[in-house]
Amino acid sequence: MLIYHYISEILFFAFIVLTFFGGILAVRSKLIIHSVLGLAVCFLGVAGLYFYLDSPFLSMMQILIYVGAICIVLVFGVMVGYTPTQIAEKHLKGKNLVLAVMSGALVFSLMTAVIFKSEFVPAAKRTGDFSMEWLGRSLLYDYCLAFELISLILLAAIVGAIILGQGGRGDN
């Protein structure tokens, strides 16, 4: 059975590579539509990582919501709002690039140091399991209020998006 462990480990690294390249494509590409593509690839990689974290349900939700909804909305935003000459990013300013690289390196080194310095202790006793049954139970019993509030937030977002999007292209 060990061979299957190694195969799954190779797949794990494939998902990591997918995530990395998707993230780099999302922030480095000149065309906005390529950025959206990179974002979709990155989210697919993270969905694969969720499988290794014992939650296939969250993996499916990641694909459904992030890749299926958010990326499509972003594509709509790019297609509707931008004229073709403005799809390409304008020149990248040098000052911003230096600032971005410096802050990114700073945050990366700080967080890596924190991860390797600290010790993570597993919980002494675990209740429940990773099954979907337990997830649904706690979603509808323990976290019922938050569940209802999320639906309220989504309703407010829908109404707000409709109001903001009112009017045609030439309508000021």
């Binding site: 995530t19 990395f20 993230g23 780099i24 999302a26 922030v27 990155c42 993270v46 990248l92 911003n96 690039l97 600032l99 971005a100 690289v101 802050s103 990114g104 945050v107 990366f108 967080m111 890596t112 991860i115």
Partner: peptide, 13 residues
Amino acid sequence: VFLFVTGIYGMIQ
């Protein structure tokens, strides 16, 4: 951490 740093980098750049 890598995803977070990429996001910050892209947000500034």
